[in-house]
Every structure is written in structure tokens, then in C-alpha cells.
């Protein structure tokens, strides 16, 4: 399926076309389940989250028209934001956060990098301009849904310091991305 095909499906879903919704689920559910699983690290929770995600896609597909995201990225954003809502709402942090992070290496594999291709170059180049551990914190937050509290623990700095760090990194990133 080309991005244009996915776009068409999303537009048809916004017009409450159930056949399009079925096709969209077939084409994209493994990607979005991967997102939920990576962030939630629990199959049961990820399964429940995936349901919520497609309910949201059905009800808010019309919003795709006003987003500048590509269709797949828009769907990933819906899934990622929902999964992060779920982990933020649950108990503070899993006890074995370090072990869990080891399992899910924030760096994407070579295939994923190839997929990201040239559009991914800009964000990756700008992340490379940050200090190494700060870039790792940003990538970890984005891909794993790490909270400020979890990042502070991992990098052994106070919470406020972590937040200052990350905000400064975001300002530097913005400066680079807008260059």
C-alpha cells in the first residue's frame, strides 16, 4: 500500500466507511501494535491500547486533514500518544526499568533506518549535534515513552536537572531543525 492508498482509507474512514476501516486495520494494525507493545512492554496492556487506538482513529479520522503528518506517521502518533497516556496514568514506574530498557534498544535497526531514509536525516543529524547522552535521552523518550522521572533515574540526576537538560536539548534541536 502506498501512502496515498492509506490517505484514501483514512479519508473514507472519516466518512464512516466501515469497509475502509477494515482495510485500514488490516494494513496498519501490526505497525500500531508494535508501537503499543514497545511503549507499554506488556502484551495484555498493548492489546487493550490497540483497541482504544482504533476507536480513536474511527472517531477522529477527520483530523488527519488538518495535520501535516504523512498518513502512517499520523496513525503512529495516535497510537504513541495513547500508549503514553496509559503509562503516564499507571503507577509511577516499573521496578525493573533498566532491564526493560535494555531489552528495547532505542536505536532502530538498519532496515528501519533505511525506511526513515532522507526524511529521517534532518532529525537524526540534529540529534547528532547534541551531546551523546542527551540525544539518547531524547530518542529514549520518543521511542519508549520514558518519563522525566525514569530518565532522571537512569541518568542519575535530580528530576529538575533532567527536565532542564531535556528542555535545553529541545531548544537546540529546534534551532537546528529550523536552520
Amino acid at each position: 500500500m502506498t501512502p496515498q492508498d492509506i490517505t484514501k482509507l483514512i479519508v473514507r474512514v472519516s466518512m464512516k466507511d466501515r469497509a475502509a476501516f477494515d482495510a485500514l486495520y488490516r494494513e496498519t494494525s501490526s505497525k500500531l501494535f508494535g508501537v503499543c507493545l514497545r511503549v507499554l512492554r506488556d502484551r495484555g496492556e498493548a492489546e487493550e491500547a490497540l483497541q482504544e487506538v482504533y476507536v480513536k482513529i474511527w472517531t477522529k479520522a477527520d483530523r488527519f486533514a488538518v495535520s501535516d503528518l504523512s498518513p502512517i506517521s499520523w496513525l503512529v502518533a495516535v497510537a504513541r500518544n495513547h500508549a503514553i497516556d496509559v503509562i503516564r496514568a499507571r503507577r509511577p514506574a516499573p521496578a525493573d526499568i533498566d532491564a526493560a530498557v535494555d531489552v528495547s534498544d532505542p536505536a532502530p535497526g538498519p532496515e528501519a533506518l533505511a525506511v526513515a531514509g532522507s526524511e529521517g536525516e534532518r532529525i537524526n543529524n540534529c540529534l547528532d549535534e547534541l551531546e551523546k547522552d542527551r540525544a539518547a535521552a531524547v530518542r529514549g523518550a520518543y521511542l519508549n515513552g520514558d518519563s522525566y522521572a525514569e530518565l532522571a533515574e537512569r541518568f542519575s540526576v535530580p528530576l529538575n536537572t533532567m527536565r532542564t537538560w531535556l528542555r535545553r536539548s529541545l531548544l537546540k534541536l529546534r534551532e537546528c531543525l529550523e536552520r
Binding site: S29, S30, K31, L32, F33, G34, V35, L37, R38, E47, L50, S67, D68, L69, S70, I72, S73, V76, A77, R80, A107, P108, G109, A112, L113, V115, A116, E119, G120, E121, R122, I123, N124, R139, Y142, L143, L173, L177
Partner: peptide, 16 residues
């Protein structure tokens, strides 16, 4: 979201 979206393409597919 647009800035960071390329990172999101690194998520592996897992069959639901």
C-alpha cells in the same frame, strides 16, 4: 510531531 515522525518509522511491526 512532523519533526520527530521519522524516528517513529523505527518501530518494528508486531502482528496484533
Amino acid at each position: 510531531e512532523v519533526y520527530f515522525a521519522p524516528l517513529g518509522l523505527g518501530y518494528a511491526d508486531v502482528e496484533a
